[in-house]
């Protein structure tokens, strides 16, 4: 899952970013409205955390511009005052959720997860198939009552594939959702991580479509 965090307070950004990365997200940061608008339009984010008070272009205008161009990326608006009129204005501009400052980082993570699940048409807050159970908090996967610890990249890759199970995902597509902007994106690395995942969860869960990409599919469903 790749996120864009738009916030101009460097201190807040620093700890929000590190906590989000720890929670298994690839995070890009923009500290002004203009950069944010551009990034949101060009990169395939899974969700955006958008502050309203931004230099150069207000958050509400950025959101308006995205929605005006048909960009439906899920957006959580951070409001400084958590007042209802701000939420109503945000709703009118096309926001998907709201969080008043100051907030607990756990609350933000829960909201981001809920929003992403909602976007993938899930109501349950658990990512699981008959054979696999993914524990997001400790980044472990349980396969037939056997627990495996996952590395950060493995976790991000597996979660993205489980949320998009049944879809063909190309290596480029996967790397765009698993790595942030600043990481070295080598699609061969995806092959390496797919191989490691297969070692942990079994070969039959991830199928290779030659020349197209990979499909996550639990054969027991």
């Amino acid at each position: 899952m790749r996120l864009l965090v738009v916030e101009d307070d460097p201190e807040l950004v620093a700890y929000v970013r590190s906590d989000l990365v720890k929670a298994g997200f690839a995070v890009d940061v923009a500290d002004n409205g203009v950069d944010a608008e551009h990034l949101g339009d060009t990169e395939p984010y899974d969700a955006v955390v958008l502050d309203l008070g931004l230099p150069q272009k207000p958050g509400m205008d950025v959101l308006h511009a995205w929605r005006g161009r048909g960009n439906r990326v899920p957006v959580i608006v951070l409001t400084a005052r958590d007042a209802w009129y701000e939420r109503v204005d945000g709703f009118k501009a096309g926001a998907d959720d709201y969080l008043g400052k100051p907030f607990h980082i756990e609350e933000l993570i829960a909201r981001i997860r809920a929003l992403i699940y909602r976007r993938h048409g899930r109501t349950s807050h658990r990512i699981e198939t008959p054979t696999l159970k993914l524990d997001e908090d400790v980044q472990q996967v349980e396969v037939n009552n056997e627990t495996h610890q996952l590395t950060g990249t493995e976790f991000r890759l597996l979660r993205y594939m489980m949320l998009n199970s049944g879809r063909i995902l190309s290596k480029t597509h996967l790397s765009e959702h698993v790595y942030d902007q600043d990481s070295e994106r080598d699609s061969n690395l995806i092959e390496v991580y797919i191989r490691r995942l297969r070692e942990k969860i079994g070969n039959q869960m991830i199928l290779t479509k030659r020349g197209q990409g990979y499909i996550f599919n639990d054969p027991t469903t």
Binding site: R87, V88, D96, D97, Y98, T123
Partner: peptide, 16 residues
């Protein structure tokens, strides 16, 4: 229009 936006907002927040 404000009330309908407010209700839309609440339906979104309590979508579950």
């Amino acid at each position: 229009s404000e009330i309908s936006a407010l209700i839309g907002l609440l339906e979104q927040v309590y979508s579950e």
